[in-house]
């Protein structure tokens, strides 16, 4: 067990020594990987901020249920009771027609028009908040309510939710697409770097094989090299995203204030940062594995 740990420690140190032994090459490789990873990482940062903004916006998607004008209060009470017991309904607010009329009369612009009418034109209504506010779930609920007796009209206030949802889906898809494409690029960079390393250490590999080294012993430093390359690139990407966030925070906040929004741009959180570094390390390892399979000759 101890020998196993020492073997891995030595391989990791050897990989570090090799990285440090060619500082310019290593730095350029790390920058290439870092810049490539900055695009999907930056995309993820923007999506996460958009989700945060959507989550903190006060407007919660709701369903407005309007009774028929001829419906009596008893019918409205029955609907209220039914809504209260209905699965998927989180909260119901009853708006009696008299209250609506009084509120409209309170609006100076509408008061004269309302008073000119012969009676109360407003129906009893309910504002329903659903437990699941995804657009498709809200639409399903609205369809149900439309079938109920004495319900004249059901209005789903979800157009903006759908637009935001579609935008976020697009953002996520673009991030995954970019991540996949640039991930392949990272694998290619790691593949090429390991190929160079194998060529540079050809003599050492041959001697080790002759002295009884297993394939695992020979491959280990190269695999660590690939992981360190990916991980280093991930750290560069993380720093670049952090710098971009810091740089964009002030002008974006200014823009948000013009739209009466409170927006503070956040950099990648702990989960996304870990994912970025893990993803980068894994891709470096993958490139190294493919390269070793391709270029390491048995003796």
């Amino acid at each position: 067990m101890k020998a196993w740990v020492v073997g891995h420690r030595d391989a990791a140190l050897l990989a570090l020594r090799r990285l440090a032994g060619a500082p310019v090459n290593s730095l350029l490789s790390l920058l290439a990987i870092g810049v490539a990873l900055t695009l999907p990482a930056g995309g993820q940062m923007l999506v996460a901020n958009a989700l945060h903004l959507a989550g903190t916006t006060s407007a919660v998607p709701q369903i407005s249920v309007f009774m028929a004008a001829s419906a009596e209060r008893r019918a409205a009470s029955e609907i209220e009771s039914r809504l209260g017991k209905y699965g998927g309904v989180k909260q119901v607010q009853f708006l009696p027609r008299e209250e609506t009329l009084a509120r409209m009369k309170g609006n100076p612009g509408l008061r004269d028009v309302i008073e000119a009418l012969p009676g109360n034109p407003f129906p009893d209504a309910f504002i329903v908040t659903a437990t699941d506010d995804r657009p498709e779930a809200m639409e399903k609920l609205a369809q149900e309510f439309r079938q109920w007796p004495k319900v004249e009209h059901v209005q789903l206030d979800s157009a903006w939710v759908r637009r935001l949802d579609a935008l976020l889906k697009l953002g996520r898809t673009a991030t995954i697409l970019l991540g996949t494409l640039l991930g392949v690029g990272l694998i290619a960079i790691s593949f090429g770097s390991i190929r160079m390393q194998i060529l540079m250490h050809r003599a050492e590999i041959e001697v080790s094989q002759l002295l009884g080294a297993t394939d695992g012993f020979i491959r280990r430093p190269f695999l660590y090299y690939g992981v360190l390359l990916g991980l280093g690139g991930g750290i560069v990407a993380w720093l670049l995203v952090g710098a971009a966030t810091w740089w964009l925070r002030a002008p974006l906040g200014e823009l948000a204030r013009l739209y009466d929004l409170s927006l503070v741009l956040h950099t990648l959180d702990a989960r996304d940062s870990s994912l970025l570094l893990g993803f980068a390390g894994c891709l470096g390892w993958t490139g190294a594995t493919i390269s070793l399979r391709q270029h390491l000759q048995p003796l």
Partner: peptide, 24 residues
């Protein structure tokens, strides 16, 4: 001879033992 010229005399001789997993 197949010596490793970027490693010291000590490290060259150590190599077979590292390969065999000897305690340091």
């Amino acid at each position: 001879q197949k010596l490793l010229f970027d490693r010291s005399v000590f490290e060259n001789v150590l190599l077979p033992l590292s390969i065999a997993g000897f305690p340091p």
